[in-house]
Design a protein around this nucleic acid. Sequence first.
DNA 1: TCCAAACTGGAGTGATCATTCCAGAATGCG
DNA 2: CGCATTCTGGAATGATCACTCCAGTTTGGA
Lengths: 190, 190
Amino acid sequence: MGRYRVGLETRERILSATRRLLGEVGVEDVTLKAITDQAAVGAGSFYNLFGSKEEVVLEVIREALDAVDPDPAGAGTDPLEDLVEAFVQFVTDSTPIARIYLQLAVGRGLTDPLVGQRLLRSHRRRVERFADALRRARPDLDARDAAAEAEMLLAALTGLGLTALLDPDFDMHAHAMRLLPAGEASVPGT
Amino acid sequence: MGRYRVGLETRERILSATRRLLGEVGVEDVTLKAITDQAAVGAGSFYNLFGSKEEVVLEVIREALDAVDPDPAGAGTDPLEDLVEAFVQFVTDSTPIARIYLQLAVGRGLTDPLVGQRLLRSHRRRVERFADALRRARPDLDARDAAAEAEMLLAALTGLGLTALLDPDFDMHAHAMRLLPAGEASVPGT
DNA sequence: TCCAAACTGGAGTGATCATTCCAGAATGCG
DNA sequence: CGCATTCTGGAATGATCACTCCAGTTTGGA
């Protein structure tokens, strides 16, 4: 199954075209013809490199899912502020991928049980990371309260992200900053 | 265009079937056959009553959009608590319609500029209502702060709603109550 | 009771897609 | 070079849909 150089280049062109189209047209409405036209490639070439349309779409979607949480291995060192900042950057800088992510979360996650469960799992993992960061910042915090507050933080970020994607003028950064405790530098706990 | 009684009944059966299917299968994947099968009706009967598949789908979607904000005329009398409670009820009680609403908001709103703008307008109206309620509860609040806080509140509610729709065990009510100023918690009947 | 209008199911139509097939061109290892 | 392997476009295929057509049935006002 050794590939020639031109083949790998074509592969990249197809992935790139799919990435763009998913953000523009949406996961549901993307056609093979649109992809192959955008990539300037015949259908035959496409199927020489990919097994199906779904395969490319899933590949790009996997990118999108991974991009929300760039460092899933990073055990528990990031301060809360960085976690929030990372999410804001994900939405504002990777707009097309963020669009795909949200489309997937809602369009597919709400109707396809498998996608829904996968999303839920990754959501819970993120809640834990936020809760850990919260307790590191405020050691006086009860574990249960930290979890609830983390859930709320993520919910707010998701909601703000949605608004930001709908409204290009929305200043997500400013709003997200309000979620952080004022004057984070020194908050003495008991 | 006078309709017979049986015709009106069939119409209702079709609308009801569409409502159910949109929540289950999703706006994009619903087929005419699924609708007519679910409603136990032939294609001919369907087109005797509706002009197109889109017409029924839009009818149901309009329901969903109206249901988020049950009293758009209600100038400014509802206390904050009621506004939050109404949203929680929308998600937990009208689950299928809430699903449709979110699917529409994200799936279509993110790709179709017209839908996106309509959603944004209704969002801004709701932010205003929340901000008004906030200033009524805490008159010391700056108008700018009230708006920002209202934006946050709605974002958090949307995010929590999304989680609730993905996770049947999620206690949205409990989480939403944390959004209200402490001490204000109303307990309907636990 | 009469009958025009409304209702009915389902076979048929045409459009849109993803996917397959294939013959010829390009690639790069020996 | 030689040549097996990979790449290429695009016509052909078959599946899936929304929608049309129509012959027969039901409805309900006069």
